[in-house]
Design a protein around this nucleic acid. Structure first.
Lengths: 168, 168
DNA sequence: GGAAGTTTGTTGTTGACGACAACAATCGTC
DNA sequence: GACGATTGTTGTCGTCAACAACAAACTTCC
């Protein structure tokens, strides 16, 4: 399992103590992860970083980040929700949602409508502009999802979704 | 797919516009995620948050966070590595690793030894105290891993590790 | 009907984290 | 020996989770 070959032409590498005080070049893939390989959290974290970066890059032109996309999608599918409801459903803190909505409202994608039945809360809606924008975001997000398929395989992606289904 | 049942006794809920201006209580699980359900990134993010929180809670008494654990584990398995090598292997920025090591060094778990062959770099080692501490951390991390098993199932956890193996 | 407790949105702070940029010291190479 | 690259460091910026506190509005209970 452990790579032992020392490539003389390797560029990015570290130094390793030999028996004496000297060091020799070692490649990153020679470095053992030890207990880390058995930890799901580590693999998930690395994967999450990858997937996040691809999402941001794929939706870079429209300047939409994953959290913003999730908020827009939920509001689009459930118009009139309160901020609390959205926050609870997406596992976002309501304090954090305030800023997210401030930004989305400034961009004219979302509007906060005063609820008539509960004067504390806001009913969240997409603007007309928000509707058409979200449609575009969804197309780009689908493209991102194809990148995921390309990276881990179609079946593995579906397996993953099944395994993690009840975290959504 | 959309839950329509309205439970009268539901506590945490939002309000939904009826045909008129009125609202009715709806439960969080009534809120559709729409396109989000098909996105691996969303499921992974939620799972990552869960797993992260469980790790932090399980290793709470020893005050070790996932990133710190990964750094200690890699140094423990590969004594003498440079900061660059560790950063590259774990996908951490070397700027960030500086602070991580500052903290771990203050806690006497890690020591930076001046390299004799490259006076720019530090050879990273665990202290004796760090060795015994890491052994304890590993036991707790294994306990955390059992929580993951309990949550998603033994086979699913293994499937997950296989699917994401090349992100580590 | 009114007091007491709760919920909603908001503001603010803290700390972990990823991403960048700049810098001095040092190394490698030509 | 000069020039470019690498290493550790410092600093800034923006995202994000986690809390705490607050006013306004709602609910509950007496």
């Amino acid at each position: 399992m452990t790579a032992l070959a020392a490539r003389a032409d390797a560029r990015p590498s570290a130094r390793k103590r030999a028996g004496n005080g000297a060091t020799r070049r070692i490649d990153a893939d020679e470095i053992g992860l030890d207990a880390l390989v058995g930890h799901a959290g580590y693999a998930v974290r690395r994967f999450q970083i990858w997937i996040f970066q691809d999402f941001v890059k794929t939706l870079g032109n429209v300047d939409i980040r994953p959290t913003q996309y999730s908020v827009l999608t939920v509001i689009g599918a459930n118009p009139g929700l309160s901020q609390m409801a959205v926050a609870k459903r997406l596992g976002i803190e309501r304090a954090r949602l305030v800023h997210l909505l401030d930004s989305l409202e400034q961009r004219k994608l979302v509007k906060r409508v005063k609820s008539k039945t509960d004067r504390r809360s806001h009913a969240l809606h997409l603007t007309a502009q928000g509707e058409t924008a979200l449609a575009k975001f969804k197309r780009l997000a689908a493209e991102h999802e194809r990148h995921v398929e390309d990276r881990i395989g179609k079946e593995n992606r579906e397996r993953l979704l099944r395994i993690l289904a009840d975290f959504t």
